[in-house]
Design a binder for these strands. Structure first.
Lengths: 349, 349
DNA sequence: TTGAAAGCGATACCAT
DNA sequence: ATGGTATCGCTTTCAA
C-alpha cells in the first residue's frame, strides 16, 4: 500500500502578527534613541568603551522589544572571518560509533566557541564541492571519509581563507592535516587473531553496497598483510546486506573450504553467521567468525561474536587540533594515526 | 589501555604557495581589466546584459587564475535572502531509517537549489538555539524531534526572515508547519496486534536512555489506547540498553506474569529476547515479543522477530512542502500526519 | 559617553 | 557593451 501524507484540517491561526520586515541594529538604535555604534557596543559588551547603565538598559529593551537578532553574514563580512567549522555530511551510512564521535566533536568545538555546520553535499563531487564549501568562508573544514577532497580542493579552501583543513580518512591529502583512520589495522587485527587461533583458510567479506569500498578494501588488505608470508590463504567474499545473498554464500560454503571468516563488521557477521548456522555450518567448530565495531548485538548472538573493537580519537582531541591549526595556520600539517583496533575475543572464534 | 593519538613524522611540505589574501571580485576585475560590475555579470550569466565574448573569456580566465570563489555572506547580504535550509542536527542517536530520510531530503532540496546545512546545536537549548539559528538568516528551518523549539522560537525565526519553519516530531508548534510523527501509532499497532493474537497481559519496554522519552512515552501510550476498554493489562518495563539490565528484567519475568511484550524497537527487542531465552522463557509460546523499525537484524533472530514497520515521508514530498512554503510564506501552516505504521508479523508473536 | 562615517564583498540600477 | 555607484547590516576608528 503506497504511503501518502495526510493533511489535517487546521484551526485558523489566531491572527499571526503582521510579518514586518527584519529589524536591524539601526531599528534598535532608533527605538532606543541612540546611534548604531552604541547599540553595537552594548550588545557585544565592548570592553573598550564604557556605556552608561541607563543607556545599556534602553538598548537591551529596544532589542528585546523588536526581537532583534544580529545578522551573522553582515557581522562576519565586516569582521573578515567567521568561526564556522564546516563539515561535509558523510554520504555513507554511519554507525553509532561515528555518530557519537561527531556529536562529541561538535560539543567540544562548541566549547571553544566555534559553530559547527554539516554541509549536505549529496550529489556534489570533488572540487566542485570544495568550491561550494569555500563560498561559506569557513575558518576550518573537516572532511570525513575518502575521495571527497583532493589537493586541488585543499588549495581552493585555503585560498578562500580556511585556516585549517583536516581530513579524517584512509589517506592523507597534500596540504591538509590528516587524521589517518587506517582500516587496514582492523583487518590486520582480525587476521592475526584468526591465525593465532590456528585458522589457515580465511575468508574476508567484502560488502557489495556502494560507498563502503574505502573501508572494506583496506580491511581486506590488512588481513592479507597479517597473513603474508605464512601458509594461510585469503579468500575474498562479496556479500550484499540481504538474506538471499548470505544464503547463496552459505550454500557454497563447503566448496569454499574455509575455516574462518572476517565478516567486515558485526552486522555482516550476524547476517553471515545466521546463514551459516541455517546451512548446518558449526560456528566456531567448522568456521570461526569475527566481526568488527564491537556493537552490542554481537554480545547477544550465540555463540557470542568475537569482534574488533575500534577506537576513534576523542572529539576533544580533534577539537584541540582544529583550534591549534586555526590559531597557527602557518604550521606544517600534522598527520596522526587515530584508529585503535583491538580484538575482543568471545565465542565465535 | 588508554588510547592516544600518534603523530607521524612529516616530510617538509614542498614550499606551499605564499598564503596571499583572499581574492575578491575586484581583484578579478583588475586582472581582467574590466569593472566589478562586468565581473558580476559574467560570472552570474546575467541575462539582462550582453557582454562580448572576448570580455567573458578574459573574466573567466582571470577568475580561474586567481582561484576566485564568491563570498556567500556578501552575496546574501546584498540579495537580502539566502537559499539556506537550516536543520538542527538531531541530538538523539539516529537509526538507519532516519539517516536515510535526512540524506534523501538533502538530495531533494539540493535539486530545488537549496543548500542544506545541519547546525550542531549540542548543548544549546530552546529559544537560545532559535536565536543562534536565526543569526544565519536561513530561508527555511527544519526542526527534527521535540522540545527544541517553542512558539517563541518560531516567532524569532520568522521575524528574522525565515519563510518556512517546519517541525518533524510528536507535537505541532504554533505558527510552524508540522510533520506529525505520531509514535503513538506505532504503539497502537503493536498493542492491537498482540491483542489480536490473544495476548492479554502486555509489557511495554521503556528505554532508560535519555533523549528517547519523546518516542518511548507516545509508543507506550499508543499501546494503552489500543487496549483501552478491553480486559488486557499494560505493564511498563524500564530497561537500559545493557545485558545486565535485561538479565535483571528477565529474572523477574515469572512474577511479572506477562504473555507479551512490545520492546520499544528491534534493538531492545533483541536484547530482551536474548535475556528471556537465556532465562528459559519460550518465545512466542510463553511470551510474545514484538519490536519496531523493521531492521534487518529482526529477520535474523530465531524466532524471527515480529516488528512494526515505520514509514517516514519521502524526502521529495517534504522538500516540496518546504519549497511551497518558501514560495508562499503567507499561507496557513500545514499539518500532516506522516508516520505510517504497519505490523510485520513473523514468528515471535 | 556617544555619534559620524568608512568599509567588508557582491549586485543591480542608471548612465554613458 | 561597459562603468560608476548606492546598498545590504554590522563593527570600529576617530572626533567630539
Amino acid at each position: 500500500m503506497p504511503y501518502v501524507m495526510v493533511q489535517i484540517p487546521k484551526t485558523p491561526a489566531p491572527s499571526s502578527p503582521a510579518p514586518r520586515s527584519v529589524p536591524t541594529s539601526a531599528d534598535v538604535a532608533r527605538l532606543a534613541g541612540v546611534s548604531r555604534a552604541t547599540v553595537s557596543y552594548v550588545l557585544n559588551n565592548a570592553s573598550a568603551v564604557r556605556i552608561s547603565e541607563p543607556t545599556r538598559r534602553r538598548v537591551h529593551e529596544a532589542a528585546k522589544e523588536l526581537g532583534y537578532v544580529p545578522h551573522a553574514a553582515a557581522r562576519s563580512l565586516r569582521a573578515g572571518h567567521s568561526r564556522m567549522v564546516l563539515m561535509p555530511a558523510p554520504s555513507f551510512p554511519v554507525g553509532p560509533l561515528y555518530s557519537q564521535f561527531i556529536s562529541e566533536l561538535q560539543w567540544a568545538l562548541g566549547r571553544l566557541d566555534y559553530t559547527v555546520v554539516q554541509y549536505g553535499s549529496v550529489g556534489v563531487h570533488g572540487d566542485e564541492a570544495a568550491r561550494a564549501w569555500a563560498e561559506l568562508r569557513p575558518v576550518a573544514v573537516l572532511v570525513p571519509g575518502p575521495g571527497s577532497l583532493g589537493p586541488q580542493g585543499v588549495t581552493v579552501l585555503k585560498r578562500s581563507g580556511a585556516r585549517a583543513v583536516v581530513t579524517l580518512g584512509p589517506h592523507s591529502v597534500e596540504g591538509a592535516h590528516a587524521l589517518l583512520m587506517d582500516h587496514g589495522a582492523v583487518g590486520h587485527c582480525a587476521g592475526s587473531h584468526l591465525f593465532d587461533r590456528g585458522r589457515r583458510r580465511i575468508g574476508v567479506v567484502v560488502p557489495e553496497e556502494e560507498g563502503l569500498e574505502s573501508f572494506s578494501l583496506p580491511r581486506l588488505d590488512g588481513v592479507r598483510r597479517a597473513l603474508h608470508g605464512s601458509d594461510a590463504t585469503v579468500t575474498e567474499l562479496p556479500l550484499a546486506y540481504e538474506e538471499e545473498s548470505a544464503a547463496r554464500l552459505a550454500a557454497r560454503w563447503r566448496e569454499l573450504d574455509l575455516d574462518a571468516v572476517f565478516a567486515y563488521n558485526d552486522e555482516y557477521a550476524m547476517l553471515l553467521m545466521r546463514a551459516l548456522q541455517d546451512g548446518g555450518v558449526r560456528v566456531p567448530e567448522d568456521t570461526a567468525v569475527i566481526g568488527a565495531d564491537d556493537l552490542m548485538l554481537g554480545r547477544l548472538l550465540r555463540p557470542r561474536l568475537s569482534t574488533v573493537h575500534i577506537e576513534l580519537p576523542s572529539g576533544r582531541d580533534l577539537a584541540e587540533l582544529v583550534d591549534r591549526a586555526v590559531r597557527n595556520p602557518g604550521a606544517a600539517p600534522e598527520t596522526h594515526k587515530v584508529l585503535g583496533a583491538t580484538v575482543v575475543h568471545r565465542e565465535s572464534s
